[in-house]
Design a protein around this nucleic acid. Structure first.
Lengths: 363, 363
DNA sequence: CTGAAAGCGCTTACAG
DNA sequence: CTGAAAGCGCTTACAG
């Protein structure tokens, strides 16, 4: 019940820093003005870097502000300007999902988004949203943020529907991972990445290359990766083969089951392009358990560049998106939309991260 | 240059929702008051749930607010109350660190902290801070947050020194991973977890158990884990043996080098308790490459419960902190400190996550 | 180049 | 139980 207008009282005059009287009041621009011998409006202008303020005045104000340890109250500034300098970043998780099972790819993306926003002078208000009765997207209405970046799993359609509604109501929203085409999105160059992966396997001498993916998943990238693979195979005159993973399992379990199905089919294969790393990491032990050596007998390439791939045995060759570019694209596009410019879709470049699971020749 | 007092003008009266005139102005509590036929102060009270407002009035105000799609401008509310309802969460990374190499343990902790804050009605302002010339901790001074939670790697001493200064200047700061004992911290029950891990190896029939850790690392938890291990070994009358990992390498490289040193020492061993999962995952391939089978010849237990351990071969037995409890402890302690209560250190419980790297008996 | 004044949109004593 | 008024701490036209 510390409820009172305690903010109105000043502890001791802000100039005398020596004594030990408890600081009860906030230092305001009026205090700085008094200290510097100028008006409060001049303090505001000087500290905001308004070029109309003379250099001498600016320096005097800066010194006074430093002496009093003054900092602008952003709530007051935001109330006045209507701008928050803050971006909401919503990470969609599965309902009831445990953080430790959360897709590390999205964590990396989150980190890149926060870094990009920070580099552009914006704060990031981050939330992990899963439970369908606890979805919150009123950031702009409450003036907590100027716009939102929504990333995460497409396996929570209710959440995506909700944020589609938020976007349709006029909020500024940019997405990564949306199952809805009508939301403004940024994505990896999935087709190009799949071509890269497939080409690499072909160049490494593999020929019977199969693809674990899906044409019907809500995650559009899986279809795009399958298409890039099929395209590249066709160019080489090689027959594409799709092993469709089953819905309703965790990614690594999907990889496990797909690998089992592949082996049990009896059809020959000497390489697998897996549409995501977590499936590839689920598939690897199945091959090992069946006495199939990777990369000597079967090559394997994943997609996403998650950290666990670097710790797997063998280490997993993968296609890695440019996380830096991804974060920058999401933030820059959002800032452009906030500034009133039209949205432009963008593909983030990817690169081949060559590791041991595809090196037929070596070792 | 959309700089003007455009926020002062109303587009059309907020009542008529039918026509298509562009909404240029924000709906305020005055608009809701007019719609509901009460005063603005009553709107504020009704929407804040003040019990002094009659139920009939409250319902009328709520209906008016819903009709006008009104939402409180949090900047105005915060300016008035002095409270932000926001916690800053700072994740300390190594300078220049790439997000994808970032310790997944800290990502999980971040997720748990955000979830705990959200469950308690607080927003989280998240930043990843590494570069020593870009450290930012003025959240309270700028009234962007009521307090801060600082987590992350102890391998950025400059950053920790900086946030120690922030805490000493009077800000509310709770840490996880701080190398400084004088910062208020929450930690895992490292000693208990190490005892659990060691006991499990003993019960599984291993006897020559070594510990990869360090007594001198800035990360205090490594010493605590070594101590818990040594304690448990002593209780069993078994000689403890410490393999100190080398500073200056990545965690998995440290594990790799420690395992090599252990093998090359020629001394017998039949189990390893590794003070963190990433080192254990670095050590596993070394054992395999030397023809040492895990878990049949050598058992292995890690610490941290990172996801990659579940995808390793063999899957890694580990000690996992209760992430839910960790996030809750950090947030609850911070909120208590903000409310003026004294800080109390807290240990977060851990549990044994039994997987295949320590199952000597089973195949 | 600087100052006086208005006003952003709330919450909360203070009256009634 | 409700209303009129003050004031949180800024930014920014408007004057000079």
């Amino acid at each position: 019940m510390a409820e009172d207008t305690t903010q109105n009282h000043k502890p001791h005059s802000p100039g005398d820093s020596g004594d030990a009287a408890p600081r009860r009041y906030r230092v305001t621009s009026f205090d700085v003005a008094a200290e510097a011998g100028v008006s409060q409006s001049t303090v505001s202008r000087a500290l905001a870097g308004d070029p109309v303020v003379s250099e001498a005045t600016r320096a005097r104000v800066a010194a006074a502000a430093a002496k009093l340890n003054y900092h602008v109250d952003e709530n007051a500034a935001r109330l006045r300007t209507g701008r928050t300098g803050t971006l909401a970043v919503v990470v969609i998780v599965r309902p009831e999902q445990d953080m430790k099972t959360f897709n590390p790819f999205h964590f990396s993306l989150l980190g890149s988004v926060c870094a990009a926003a920070s580099a552009r002078g914006h704060d990031t208000l981050v939330s992990f949203q899963g439970a369908v009765d606890e979805l919150r997207g009123l950031y702009q209405e409450q003036r907590k943020a100027d716009g939102m970046i929504v990333i995460g799993t497409s396996e929570n359609p209710t959440a995506w529907d909700y944020f589609r509604g938020v976007a349709q109501s006029g909020a500024h929203v940019i997405c990564w991972g949306s199952p809805h085409e009508d939301l403004d999105w940024i994505r990896s160059d999935n087709r190009g990445g799949a071509r890269l992966a497939t080409g690499h396997l072909i160049e490494s001498g593999y020929r019977n290359i199969v693809c674990i993916a899906s044409e019907t998943s809500a995650q559009r990238q899986f279809k795009e990766r399958w298409q890039g693979y099929a395209e590249r195979m066709a160019e080489e005159g090689l027959p594409p083969r799709l092993i469709t993973f089953e819905e309703g399992y965790s990614r690594d379990e999907q990889g496990r089951r797909a690998a089992l199905a592949l082996i049990e089919s009896g059809e020959p294969f000497d390489a697998i392009f897996c549409c995501c790393d977590e499936m590839a990491l689920g598939a690897l032990p199945v091959l090992r358990d069946h006495g199939i050596s990777v990369p000597d007998q079967v090559g394997m390439v994943g997609f996403d560049g998650i950290r666990a791939g670097a710790l797997a045995a063998p280490t997993l060759t993968t296609i890695e998106p440019d996380f830096h570019a991804a974060g920058a694209a999401l933030v820059d596009r959002l800032l452009a939309v906030i500034a009133g410019k039209p949205f432009e879709k963008e593909r983030v470049p990817v690169r081949l991260l060559m590791r041991k699971s595809s090196k037929k020749v070596l070792k």
